[in-house]
Computed example of a mutant assay.
Amino acid sequence: MSWASPFWFPHTVTVEDAIPAGGSGTRFAEPRTVAAEVKDQQRIVVGADANEHVSNTQVTVPISAAVPVGSMVTVWAGRVGARRARVIAVQRDENLPPLPSHLILSLQ
Protein backbone atom coordinates (compact mmCIF):
# COMPACT_ATOMS: atom_id res chain seq x y z
CA MET A 1 0.00 0.00 0.00
CA SER A 2 1.36 3.40 -1.00
CA TRP A 3 1.62 6.14 1.62
CA ALA A 4 -0.26 8.39 -0.80
CA SER A 5 -3.19 5.99 -0.96
CA PRO A 6 -6.71 6.97 0.15
CA PHE A 7 -6.16 4.83 3.26
CA TRP A 8 -3.92 7.57 4.73
CA PHE A 9 -5.66 10.59 3.17
CA PRO A 10 -9.30 9.48 2.69
CA HIS A 11 -10.78 12.97 2.30
CA THR A 12 -10.23 15.99 0.08
CA VAL A 13 -10.18 19.64 1.10
CA THR A 14 -10.04 22.87 -0.85
CA VAL A 15 -7.13 25.16 0.03
CA GLU A 16 -6.85 28.87 -0.77
CA ASP A 17 -3.27 29.86 0.11
CA ALA A 18 -2.84 33.11 2.03
CA ILE A 19 -0.89 35.77 0.13
CA PRO A 20 0.17 38.59 2.47
CA ALA A 21 -0.27 41.96 0.77
CA GLY A 22 1.21 44.30 3.38
CA GLY A 23 -1.04 47.24 4.17
CA SER A 24 -3.68 45.88 1.80
CA GLY A 25 -4.37 42.89 4.04
CA THR A 26 -4.31 39.26 2.97
CA ARG A 27 -5.39 37.99 -0.43
CA PHE A 28 -6.03 34.37 -1.32
CA ALA A 29 -4.75 32.27 -4.22
CA GLU A 30 -7.03 30.32 -6.50
CA PRO A 31 -8.56 27.27 -4.77
CA ARG A 32 -6.80 23.92 -5.14
CA THR A 33 -7.88 20.44 -4.08
CA VAL A 34 -5.63 18.51 -1.69
CA ALA A 35 -5.87 14.94 -0.39
CA ALA A 36 -6.31 15.00 3.39
CA GLU A 37 -7.49 13.39 6.59
CA VAL A 38 -10.03 15.57 8.42
CA LYS A 39 -10.76 15.27 12.15
CA ASP A 40 -13.42 17.40 13.83
CA GLN A 41 -12.36 17.84 17.45
CA GLN A 42 -11.74 20.84 19.64
CA ARG A 43 -8.21 21.58 20.83
CA ILE A 44 -6.40 24.56 22.25
CA VAL A 45 -3.49 25.56 19.98
CA VAL A 46 -0.99 28.39 20.06
CA GLY A 47 -1.34 30.39 16.85
CA ALA A 48 1.25 32.29 14.86
CA ASP A 49 0.33 35.34 16.98
CA ALA A 50 1.53 33.46 20.13
CA ASN A 51 -2.01 33.49 21.59
CA GLU A 52 -4.13 30.47 22.49
CA HIS A 53 -7.01 29.68 20.12
CA VAL A 54 -9.65 26.97 19.93
CA SER A 55 -9.19 24.77 16.87
CA ASN A 56 -12.36 22.93 15.87
CA THR A 57 -10.81 20.87 13.07
CA GLN A 58 -7.42 19.35 12.34
CA VAL A 59 -6.49 18.51 8.75
CA THR A 60 -3.52 16.31 7.87
CA VAL A 61 -2.10 16.83 4.36
CA PRO A 62 1.05 15.64 2.56
CA ILE A 63 4.01 17.90 3.31
CA SER A 64 4.21 18.77 -0.39
CA ALA A 65 0.89 20.67 -0.01
CA ALA A 66 2.87 23.51 1.68
CA VAL A 67 -0.14 25.27 3.23
CA PRO A 68 0.80 28.54 5.00
CA VAL A 69 -0.77 29.89 8.19
CA GLY A 70 -3.66 32.23 7.37
CA SER A 71 -4.86 30.19 4.41
CA MET A 72 -8.53 29.27 4.05
CA VAL A 73 -9.51 25.59 3.97
CA THR A 74 -12.91 24.18 3.04
CA VAL A 75 -13.76 20.82 4.60
CA TRP A 76 -16.67 18.46 3.89
CA ALA A 77 -17.60 20.36 0.68
CA GLY A 78 -21.04 19.36 -0.56
CA ARG A 79 -21.85 17.50 2.67
CA VAL A 80 -23.56 18.27 5.94
CA GLY A 81 -21.14 20.25 8.10
CA ALA A 82 -19.29 21.82 5.16
CA ARG A 83 -17.39 24.92 6.20
CA ARG A 84 -14.55 27.25 5.29
CA ALA A 85 -12.08 28.11 8.06
CA ARG A 86 -8.75 29.87 8.52
CA VAL A 87 -5.54 27.96 9.29
CA ILE A 88 -4.38 29.22 12.70
CA ALA A 89 -1.38 26.90 13.18
CA VAL A 90 0.66 24.42 11.13
CA GLN A 91 2.54 21.51 12.64
CA ARG A 92 5.25 19.94 10.47
CA ASP A 93 5.99 16.22 10.90
CA GLU A 94 9.02 15.14 8.85
CA ASN A 95 9.90 11.46 8.74
CA LEU A 96 12.55 9.34 7.05
CA PRO A 97 11.33 6.97 4.31
CA PRO A 98 9.33 4.82 4.19
CA LEU A 99 7.16 6.90 6.55
CA PRO A 100 5.39 9.90 4.98
CA SER A 101 6.05 13.48 6.03
CA HIS A 102 2.97 15.61 6.53
CA LEU A 103 1.51 18.86 7.85
CA ILE A 104 -1.22 19.08 10.48
CA LEU A 105 -3.35 22.17 9.92
CA SER A 106 -5.31 23.51 12.88
CA LEU A 107 -8.43 25.31 11.66
CA GLN A 108 -10.30 28.01 13.53
Rank of each mutant, 00 (worst) to 15 (best):
G47Y: 02
V15A: 04
W3F: 11
A82E: 07
S2P: 15
S5W: 10
V73W: 00
P68G: 09
W8A: 14
A21L: 05
N51L: 11
R32T: 05
A66Q: 08
V75I: 06
D17G: 03
A89Q: 12
S55Y: 00
S106I: 12
A82K: 01
A35W: 13
T26Y: 07
Q41W: 07
S5N: 08
V90G: 03
F9K: 06
G70R: 04
R86I: 05
G78P: 01
Q41Y: 09
V61W: 08
T57C: 04
E94T: 13
R32P: 02
L103M: 14
G78Q: 04
P10C: 13
R27H: 06
L105V: 02
V15E: 02
R86L: 04
Q108T: 09
G25L: 02
A65L: 03
S5K: 07
L107M: 01
A21G: 09
T60D: 09
E94K: 15
E94G: 07
P100Y: 10
V87K: 01
T12I: 10
P20R: 05
V15H: 00
V69G: 04
E16G: 04
A35N: 14
R84L: 02
T26C: 10
M72K: 06
V73K: 00
M1I: 11
V73L: 00
S55R: 01
V13S: 02
A21P: 01
V45W: 04
A65F: 01
A66K: 06
I104S: 12
A77M: 05
R32H: 09
R86A: 04
D49Y: 15
L107S: 01
R32W: 12
F9G: 07
P100K: 13
T74D: 06
A48I: 14
A21N: 10
I104W: 05
A77V: 03
V13T: 06
V46G: 15
Q108G: 12
I88M: 09
R84Y: 00
N51W: 13
A48W: 13
D93C: 11
R43H: 14
L107W: 04
T14D: 05
G22Y: 02
V90A: 01
G25P: 01
G70N: 03
R83D: 00
S64F: 14
D17N: 10
L99G: 15
H53A: 08
A4H: 11
H102T: 15
G23P: 15
Q58I: 04
V45D: 07
I44N: 08
T74H: 05
V90K: 03
P6Q: 10
A35R: 14
G25H: 03
R84M: 03
S101N: 15
M1A: 14
I63E: 06
Q108C: 10
A82S: 04
R83G: 00
I88C: 09
L103P: 05
I104T: 12
R86Y: 06
Q41A: 12
R84P: 03
P98I: 11
A36P: 08
V45K: 05
S5Q: 08
V34F: 07
R84Q: 07
A66I: 07
V87D: 01
M1T: 11
E16H: 04
H53E: 08
G25D: 06
G47C: 04
V59Q: 02
P62Q: 13
Q41G: 08
E94N: 14
D40A: 08
G22P: 05
R92N: 15
V59R: 03
V90T: 13
V38K: 00
F9I: 03
V90E: 03
S71G: 05
A85H: 01
V46E: 10
V67F: 05
